[in-house]
Amino acid sequence: MYDTGKVLIGILIFILVFTSPMLINLSGGKASVKANPVLPKSGKCIESKEYMKGYHMEMLDTWRNLVVRQDVRFLKKADGTFFMLNGVKAEMSLTKTCMSCHDNKAKFCDECHNYLEVKPYCWDCHIDPAIAKKGVKK
């Protein structure tokens, strides 16, 4: 082999770059940490767990468009009747409807979002109701 020194440096860089996921995982010691969202103890969600896992963001997007752009505020079931929540018509609202059961943002939303480095821009405008109740200190 010619120019052995330089070629070996190149091979070393190649190995480091392409094994970097393994090196990060092994040195970080957090590879076995799993996302563990805490589900509400009682109550039934408006959609199935499988649907919600994949498509909740699309549902929220549809809700936003309906509420903000068409002034359609209340959530209907497939048969056309309104969805009721604690005796009143449920709004198409993340904070008022979803988070009335899933009331812990950190232990529910953030678990998977942080695990997968998802930064939804919901929270650019909305605020975690639990924090809103306590009052925000600036």
Binding site: M22, N25, A31, S32, K34, A35, K53, G54, Y55, C112
Partner: peptide
């Protein structure tokens, strides 16, 4: 056609940490 990303990540982390 959404797949379960948490399951994907658990699989990949398992492979890439040799467990």
């Amino acid at each position: 056609f959404k797949t379960d990303l948490v399951a994907v990540k658990e699989l990949m982390l398992g492979i890439l940490s040799f467990s």
